[in-house]
């Protein structure tokens, strides 16, 4: 690929990176301020750990618990969603379903994906109560799995198509069982796609707010729900919100640093056709 205009390109990229980073830096800074210093718009301020302290250790704050919940919900719903979506994508893509079944299935999941989740939250709450899951993580895990299923189906649908037909035919001749074919022969080929999809699902689950707000109780509240609490009617607790926002992006940043190669190469291998 052509490597032209190196310097202008760098300038453009640095500028973009700057636009991305400034709000982050400013917000992390806000976490170290006192509320009044922030509201008065003081440019120079003496840093204080009060907000971080409040978010992490005050008895009125459940942030550590929220963090734990977000991890549990994120990891569990990602695992569940990946398992279901991969087998379903495999089934629809490679197992010769009648075309009408494929169209109906993917059409519904696409339509479903377009529906604002607030629409569904009420019904989900009633269902969760009906089967007595209201105080468990399972409620949010199931909801997030469902919400992310269409995206996972779509991405995995692309990736399973990359598995060469000759391999499957060879496995067929060797008498491999269907599970063996999927797990031992096909999976290594779409593994990068699986990783990329998994990371995407995790991010979407980590960020989801509207449904978690309705389904969560104190013991199962996720980070976004916990953060929203700081925006109450009488005063927006900006510094606590900033401190918790800064803390909440840590796992995502770690994931990104460790996993971005997997995402990009995973998505590249699928080539998104």
């Amino acid at each position: 690929m052509r490597r032209a205009h190196a310097i202008p390109v760098h300038i453009a990229l640095i500028l973009s990176a700057f636009i991305v980073l400034v709000p982050f830096i400013w917000v992390i800074g806000a976490g170290f301020r006192s509320q009044i210093s922030l509201l008065m718009g003081e440019i120079w301020f003496s840093p204080t750990l009060a907000s971080f302290n409040d978010v992490l250790f005050s008895r009125a704050s459940d942030f550590v618990l929220n963090f734990q919940n977000s991890l549990i919900v994120g990891l569990a719903s990602t695992a569940l969603c990946l398992a279901i979506a991969t087998t379903a994508a495999w089934s629809l893509g490679r197992l010769h379903w009648p075309r009408s079944v494929v169209v109906l299935f993917l059409g519904w999941s696409l339509l479903f994906h377009m529906l604002p989740p607030v629409m569904l939250a009420g019904a989900w709450y009633s269902m969760v109560r009906a089967v007595h899951l209201e105080n468990t993580h399972a409620a949010i895990i199931l909801a997030h799995t469902t919400l992310n299923l269409p995206m996972a189906l779509w991405l995995m649908g692309v990736f399973v198509r990359e598995v060469p037909q000759e391999l499957l035919d060879a496995a067929n001749i060797d008498g491999a069982s269907p599970w063996m074919t999927l797990w031992k022969i096909a999976r290594p080929i779409f593994a990068p796609g699986l990783a990329a999809t998994g990371i995407m699902i995790f991010i979407f689950s980590w960020n989801e707010f509207a449904v978690a707000l309705v389904l969560a109780v104190k013991q199962t509240a996720t980070v976004p729900v916990g953060i929203a609490k700081y925006a109450q009617g009488y005063e927006i607790q900006y510094t606590q919100m900033a401190a918790s926002a800064a803390l909440s992006i840590i796992p995502a940043v770690i994931l990104l640093v460790l996993g971005q190669r997997a995402i990009v190469s995973g998505l590249t291998s699928g080539a998104l056709k």
Partner: peptide, 30 residues
């Protein structure tokens, strides 16, 4: 929240606001 911010930052000479919001007005960190 914005009304009370204006009060807390000294940007408002008056406001008609609920008593429930009072605690922050005398809090030096806010």
């Amino acid at each position: 929240a914005e009304v009370l911010q204006a009060v807390a930052t000294g940007k408002a000479a008056h406001a008609i606001a609920v008593i429930a919001a009072w605690p922050q007005v005398d809090d030096p960190s806010k």
